[in-house]
Design a protein around this nucleic acid. Structure first.
Lengths: 158, 158
DNA sequence: CTCCGTGCGTTGGAAAATCAAACCCTCTCT
DNA sequence: AGAGAGGGTTTGATTTTCCAACGCACGGAG
């Protein structure tokens, strides 16, 4: 996943965008932290899951903790960085609920501590308003890149 | 990507979780809607990109619109459903900014209409508070599934 | 002690997806 | 006629995925 455009979305996806990675996060956030639970609940091949887990641990998203010596058994816990991926999961789930099923009911409902069913809304931390597409302006920080592309329509000849 | 657990996160990922799909969304949301722009800005092989675009169009996330007859030329525009994936992109970008770079500056800054740099926060639409992991309780809606797994620790024999 | 079951992976070979480069077609411009 | 842009498709090599089977370390039952 090499992306010509410098971009944190691409960088994040290079890490957690591989097949099953976000589902691993879903499970550990639900409290299912053991290898076999992950295999059963995600349906991933064991070898692939092992590979993903290694990567997520080395990236600091998960933590491999022994919950038993002799026999040595491990569980995978989300780190702070891992927990901070939950907003991604929530918005993804909300999108799936809205657009991928025809009111046959959601397969999972999240309850917020306020007592209501969680409907996640992305807001601007500065003004508190819900963020709409039209309210955004993108400012690339890398010289040579615009929102349109690399040195957009390069004018001068070499 | 068959997931044993009934889950909108898995369903959403089955559609937009393939390599490059979310980057396509990023580009069209930035206004880069032509095939060649997508190839250049994403760095995907042309054939794969063509495949992804077909899938996203047929799923109703993108719309293929001719912007020129003779020669026939197309652009890909986000539908309403496509635009509603932006919260996913925003939270993903924010996460990447926070955890994947050591303050060498973000590659892209989004400005909100309120005049401030956008820092996206996921809030509960009911109470308006920012959502933390510990504030959530999961309620599976599918009989046979708990947060722990399928018929968690099946007790009775067949 | 031997067999069974659990937990956590690794191994091997077949099947599928990805990749890069080349190719094709349709127009336009010079 | 030739060159170039736009929008893909084809080809063949390289990677990944997949899945079943195996390995190993233990604990308990018979």
């Amino acid at each position: 996943m090499k992306d010509p455009r410098p971009c944190s979305i691409a960088d994040a996806l290079a890490l957690v965008g591989e097949k099953y990675s976000l589902l691993v996060l879903r499970e550990v956030c639900l409290g299912n932290e053991r290898f076999d639970q992950l295999v059963r609940n995600i349906g991933a091949p064991r070898d692939i899951l092992a590979t993903r887990l290694r990567r997520l641990v080395e990236a600091g998203v998960l933590e491999k903790v022994a919950y038993s010596e002799r026999p040595r058994r491990f569980r995978y816990r989300p780190t702070r960085a891992g927990l901070e991926l939950e907003p991604v999961l929530m918005t993804l789930m909300a999108w799936g609920d809205r657009h991928l099923r025809g009111d046959d009911g959601r397969p999972m409902v999240l309850e917020h501590s306020c007592g209501n069913e969680l409907v996640p809304v992305v807001t601007c931390s500065a003004c508190g308003d819900a963020v709409e597409h039209d309210d955004l302006t993108a400012h690339p920080q890398t010289p040579g890149w615009t929102t349109a592309g690399p040195a957009a329509a390069l004018p001068a000849a070499p």
